[in-house]
Write a protein that binds this DNA or RNA. Sequence first.
DNA 1: CAGAAGCCTTGACCCAGATCAATCTCATGA
DNA 2: TCATGAGATTGATCTGGGTCAAGGCTTCTG
Lengths: 248, 248
Amino acid sequence: MLQEAFSIGSHDCGDCPIRHRAVCARCEADELEQLEEIKYYRSFEAGQTVIWSGDRMDFVGSVVSGIATLTQTMEDGRTQMVGLLLPSDFVGRPGRQGSAYDVVATTDLVMCCFRKKPFEQMMETTPHIAQRLLQMTLDELDAAREWMLVLGRKTAREKIASLLAIIARRDATLHLRGTDGPLVFDLPLTREAMADYLGLTLETVSRQVSALKRDGVIELQGKRHVTIPDFGRLLEEAGDDSDGGMLA
Amino acid sequence: MLQEAFSIGSHDCGDCPIRHRAVCARCEADELEQLEEIKYYRSFEAGQTVIWSGDRMDFVGSVVSGIATLTQTMEDGRTQMVGLLLPSDFVGRPGRQGSAYDVVATTDLVMCCFRKKPFEQMMETTPHIAQRLLQMTLDELDAAREWMLVLGRKTAREKIASLLAIIARRDATLHLRGTDGPLVFDLPLTREAMADYLGLTLETVSRQVSALKRDGVIELQGKRHVTIPDFGRLLEEAGDDSDGGMLA
DNA sequence: CAGAAGCCTTGACCCAGATCAATCTCATGA
DNA sequence: TCATGAGATTGATCTGGGTCAAGGCTTCTG
């Protein structure tokens, strides 16, 4: 279940380099003005924590560039990634106090934020924003539940293939390409981060990536640069031929 | 992460035996009248499928009594439960065409439904409904992500303990009790359904339930009637001492 | 009351993936 | 230029949970 393509509306938020899926879809000029007033940018370096689980979170926003992850950690240190934030993804929990997860920048990251209080007030007076956020949250819920199937029932090889398929597809969507020809992209995650996403160890990830390479499902230039010669083949390996809702 | 207690508002929806978390929180009298008009009940027998994944879904609603499950299935038959619907839980995807999962009644089930079209129209004109649904969807998202940690990183024993804790807590909340004294409830799931929820086989579920019984973490009368003498102990077994947000 | 059908339990064995450990590959920078 | 260290690979071994198989309990039904 793929999240909606990133650009719904037909205008940008002022000088913001991305279009905010959450708020732009049906924005009027005066709403955009309101948004400008409460908008600001934040930059993070790779590895930096954007916000800790439980911490007060006084903003909502979108990823402009870079990648962030949502992770949960148990007392004994076991961690599970529960979300992957790519450019245009929304971050934040309108109406909630704190963050439920650690949000960590895995690459250099730029976010476009709105101050939370006024944003929530805007939500009250501008019904379509709440509706838009509801749609996006339903998308996230679908993605999370799709991932439950991956975590609960797929083999290590299928898990890797599923992750590569998601990233490849998101990447293609972001660059407004289809998934027909060979797909080329840079893996935004270390083997360890992949393992945390997939509920595996990094060694198993490494082995299965090697195996997929050996079997010609993927090609690797270096450790991170990936080519998918045949996306359909990859989906088969993911145990997921039903090319579920591509290019929403 | 527990879903909100089931009754937020201070009135019932007409003769409906439960309070609809989604719509009642701030309903006005005339809205209630509108709701009455588009409301109807549906009953299902244990085992019956409420709706198949992909099917057109022309209603939204709440569970009145009984239990339903949301499941996803792979082509080869592997299945993963992705949600558990207890009384007062909301079902439906406003703004979406079809269901993304199979919804199956695991016990006899009564649902209170609203026709989807008019409900959506009401959402447009009654902003608080969309906001309320957003909050509930965020709760579900939290629950789904919490479950990703269970599926990805917990041992079989911890998984069983986690499931029992969730059901025990929901049951206590539903009956407006705390989790201090011993908790007693009936398991609404077969061993197989538990396995589908936990990403295990039914044999492993059976073994771990027996082990928890042997170790005094739970007591069993018959196969389904469970007593939790010490809820804190159960949470420890679940690897989850942080009694996360109980009785929201 | 016998037989059948669900559901559950328990045992024996096996294997996918975890764990432990050694080595490799680069990019960085002194 | 050569240390340094973070990330990745690969091998050897171990084990939690899967798989296969044999019963055991209840609740229906005839």
